[in-house]
Each structure stands twice: as C-alpha cells, then as structure tokens.
Amino acid sequence: MKLSRPTMPKWPREIGWRTIVGAILLGGVIHIVATFAVPALGPAAAMRKLREALPPNQMVILRPAAPGKQPLPFLAPDAFHAICRYDVTTSPVNVSAVLGDPGWTLSLHTPQGDNFYVMPAQQLRRNEVSFTVAPGGDRTADFGLARRPSGSETFIETPTSEGLIVLRAPLRGLSWQAATEAMLRRASCSPVARKR
C-alpha cells in the first residue's frame, strides 16, 4: 500500500519577510507601551485598595491578615500594620512612632509603591522616631518651614504629594499582642500646625 506524503498548507509561503519584520518591530513598541502603561493606567493598586479604609493624615491600625479580611495580597499575616495615608498638598505631616523589636519597620511609599524611606528597628538603639514629611524643593518654604531644619528636626522630602506611611510590627506570639498593639497606638501622623 502506498502512503501519500502529507502536504504542507500553502498559506505560510504567502507570508512575506516584511510582514514578519514589521510585526516584530510593532510588537516591540506594544511591549514597551504596555509595560509603561501599567504604572500610568493602573494608578497605585495598593494605594487604591487602601484608600477607602484610610482617612488622610491619620494613623490607622490594621489587624493581622485573616481569610477574607486582607487589605493587600501577600501582606505579612504575622504582623500588625499601622498605616497613614499622608497628603502634603496643604500641609506637611508630622510622624512619630516607636519601633519595637527587630523586624519592626517604618517605611514611606509613593502611590506607585516605591519605598523611598525605611527605618528598621535595631537593638541597642533609641527606637522612638519622629520626623516631618514635606514636599520636595521650594515647597517646604511655602509652608513656613525653614529650608534648613534645626538639629532636633528631621525632614523627609516626599517625591509625591500623597503616599503611605507603614509601621509594620511582627507578632511575637499571642502573649505579646496587647503590648504590640499598645506600642502601635503610640504612632501618630498629623498635619503640621501652621505658625501664625
């Protein structure tokens, strides 16, 4: 019995090299546009998810993640989070917090998730921190604040007028839960009172 050779479809032979090269070039453009469009079109996914739960310039303590009650995906479930959605449009923001044991962190994030400042708790260090978050450049002077702060003041310039301040407190166990919450309650975030 004679087997007939499988025949290749004819349409691939119709594809010109210009089509392939042009498609690859346009594909590259689409790749770049799509990559840059994600930050531009999906403004601050984490910020968007947290916005409703966080009044501006106010520290809010979030319970550790539990099934169905998780503010963000992959957020550490073995930690309390105190988060402040800061807004320095009308006034800089004073922040103070106590950092407990190693693992505690105080971090500042832009709406895009960039962590432009972070302070970890360290043993044998003074763990009370306070600073002022202010807009960068000349805008600091707009609010009546000195461009050069005194030695006792710390300014942190934020690249965006809005963002998140996150105090993360890992749980050491149920016995320490009340103490951890008490330390978190000492954290504050409030607009700077204007000088008259």
Binding site: P39, A45, L72, H109
Partner: peptide, 19 residues
C-alpha cells in the same frame, strides 16, 4: 520597592498591589 526599579519591577509591584 526601590525608587530606581526597572519598569518591569514597578509594573509587577503595581499590578499585584504589593507594598
């Protein structure tokens, strides 16, 4: 998390709502 992150990392962080 770094401000100088490449575009893919920034898009990954944003798309997945990471902090």
């Amino acid at each position: 998390g770094r401000p100088d992150a490449d575009p893919y990392t920034r898009a990954h962080v944003l798309r997945n709502a990471l902090l």
